[in-house]
Simulated scan of single mutants.
Amino acid sequence: MEFRNLGRSGLRISAVSYGNWLTHGSQVEEDAALACVRQALDEGITTFDTADVYANTAAETVLGKALAGERREGLEIFTKVFWPTGPGAHNDHGLSRKHIMESIDGSLRRLGTDYVDLYQAHRYDHETPLEETMLAFADVVRAGKALYIGVSEWRAEEIRAAAELARELRVPLISNQPQYNMLWRVIEAEVVPTSEELGLSQIVWSPIAQGVLTGKYRPGQPPPAGSRATDEKGGAGMIERWMRDDVLTKVQELAPLADQAGLTLAQLAVAWTLQNPNVASAIIGASRPEQVTDNVKAAGVTLEADLLAAIDDVLGDVVERDPAKTQSPRRSEVLG
């Protein structure tokens, strides 16, 4: 396993990390989830990412159970706060001081740990003053409940404003967690340059576009039984944007390039994200242990410049690059 520093901090994390969005407590039965975490550990993954909202807190509980008994100093455990996790009352969401302080305690209890290595703002809160949010995060760090803080899916100007407050509060803001893959590159124009300037790294989610970049979805054909595209608990809705014949056709055309590199399509996709020097880690998920074994082989792979150019040529205009696609919901949208 390759290890990289997260931002300008001294924290080193595994270049491939394991996340349990849309799997633990939802799509995958608990025994299978535990087996996937065990396989991740066996493959050298030390970094585990979750969020309180995943499966409405159940994902944190499953991850805590899976990591119980492991040497805590040898792990990096990340979680997030923003989305509703309770009955949807007026203070059950957002980045108010009240919600952050109550949420960190709930996350620690479910994860079975005294602290998380990284506590992340899952989206930007348009209704709460940023000063209030950042002071609450600083107090979480000073209370020893988190070692570092990060954000997820924040725009460049939001990251810059948070970084300025973090410096004033002397609290380590070191990361952003955006969606990033061959098909979705909206962070490249603004978020990545801003993060490089400010000393933040990216921890990217959906490096294989929720399974689309594995090539298992074929144009003009129904999705395989049991795949994410058939998961009515949330997976199908999230993957829908990629399930167009023009996208699926382009993905199939990547197969010869993967063969040329001696990689599977999934490995090529994960390795592609890790070529960006601002990416510290790519988060993989799994419903079966063998998927972990396959994807982790992308760590440490170097893709030559001509191969990267060939990928761009194949994908052409199906790639989304618009920075405006990074956005956070308003409170009315959060509560539906």
Rank of each mutant, 00 (worst) to 15 (best):
T230M: 12
N276T: 11
R244E: 12
P289K: 02
A255S: 10
S227E: 08
R241C: 05
G234C: 12
A255D: 13
P222V: 07
S227C: 05
G226A: 08
W272V: 03
Q260A: 15
A282R: 01
L254T: 04
S281G: 01
W242R: 06
V247A: 01
G285N: 05
L274N: 03
N276F: 08
V279D: 00
V296G: 13
A255Y: 04
V296E: 11
G285I: 01
S227W: 01
L265N: 11
A280I: 12
S227G: 08
P223D: 04
K233H: 14
L274P: 00
W272N: 06
V296A: 12
P277E: 14
P277T: 11
D245L: 03
G235W: 11
T230E: 15
E290I: 02
L248Y: 06
P222G: 00
G234S: 09
K250M: 06
S227H: 04
K297F: 00
V279N: 04
R228D: 05
G285R: 05
P256I: 09
L263M: 11
A269R: 04
P277L: 14
A225S: 13
A225R: 14
T230A: 13
D245F: 08
W272D: 12
V292T: 02
P256A: 06
A266M: 05
G226P: 09
